[in-house]
Nucleic acid binder design. Sequence first.
DNA 1: ATAATTATTATGTACGTACATATTATTGTC
DNA 2: GACAATAATATGTACGTACATAATAATTAT
Lengths: 233, 233
Amino acid sequence: MKPTSFQTWQSVQGEVLRRIHSREWAPGAAIPNEADLAQEFGCARSTVNRALQSLADSGLLERRRKAGTRVSAQPVTKATLEIAVIRHEVEAKGEKYGYRLIERSICRPPIATSGAMQLDPSKKLLFVSALHLANDAPYAFEERWINPAAVPAALDEAFESISANEWLLEHVPYTSGEIAFSAVAAPQETASILGCAQDCAVLAVDRLTRDAQVSVTKVRVLFRPNHQLRTNL
Amino acid sequence: MKPTSFQTWQSVQGEVLRRIHSREWAPGAAIPNEADLAQEFGCARSTVNRALQSLADSGLLERRRKAGTRVSAQPVTKATLEIAVIRHEVEAKGEKYGYRLIERSICRPPIATSGAMQLDPSKKLLFVSALHLANDAPYAFEERWINPAAVPAALDEAFESISANEWLLEHVPYTSGEIAFSAVAAPQETASILGCAQDCAVLAVDRLTRDAQVSVTKVRVLFRPNHQLRTNL
DNA sequence: ATAATTATTATGTACGTACATATTATTGTC
DNA sequence: GACAATAATATGTACGTACATAATAATTAT
């Protein structure tokens, strides 16, 4: 006689997972409602609720009021990537971090940039490009546009000893935005900075950051060749 | 007099976010404990708990028993990418999906593959490569190793009308594993399949899937040039 | 002083009740 | 049969109490 009692939401989740996994509850099929499960498991409905909500969150279950809960027919895997400050990323690998400012200027951005940032194309922005190093070798090249209207203090910062990456996180943390990952061929200039061949395939991370609707910064980070972003599922 | 009452966990979360954002609660600083906040907000502690847990989950707060809750000094942004079946991904873009099997064979994998899958290198695996099309143009090229010991049924499937991608999701869903994103130069053969220049920079997604500790499949998907994976933060 | 023990404290979570809300099913009306 | 009003139902969430657990602080023993 196995213990048919599950009194923590994690154990309930485990049992539900087991049933899904063993196909006791088939893909697409409806599962019993929370009240019935609570009775079967010998716990409160709120405990079952917590477990099921967590599974719905990770995409394994689909829940709708009145309609009930069913196993996702084609679950969409969700991969969560942690985007840390580059210095921390490097140090976490056990490598020595280095930073070098390449350019800092105030100028009008390309139309594409002002458009993406939803800013007046005639307004000048702060441009900062820099190289992040790991064990003295190029690690990532960062090209960034900063909207001085959103962070005036940035105009007083030289970005010679601290990266814009880190400075911004310290001055306007907790922002929202969009992020995109792609592969690009390193342009000649970038390639020479990163120390790789021209048109070498490098991973690009493009990120637009907003602070309460207004664009703060837009950045493209190009990593050294063969860089991988990894995570567990 | 503003409403100092917050009686849903979302509104509590909103107020906490506001205070973090306005630096009323500075980065790194401790915030009042749940009981005090509950009293201030005029709600139950469990409501505050739900709100704070959710924020801790997204990396904005750090919580430790007895030590209390503090605002993360350097929050780690978490980007969640949804990895759907490629057919769905294409259809969601409003493009017509197409599929073409390129190769299907049973052979011994390279050492690197059997190693990553933690399998005996001498055991033969099922190899399937295929092309996914969007509006009749190459969209993504998939090279996959499948462990027949984990999914014997795969040996009976030709993968001519259904991609291994989709077949596996249907036959062994709810698996765990690892995923990695990188940029690679398209090898000559791949380039000709994808219809791009040799050594063209393409986004690679490498994924290892396990079903209860045992490796089921290892796949590399190369997307058409300029493909982007994007998400909101 | 240092180490081991004990108290204290904040978060973590279970429970059961109550009510809100979204969605579906049913009934009534034309 | 089409459509609107109404009932039924499963999930969503708030509340307050109780206790568990982890981490720290205070105390005691050596």
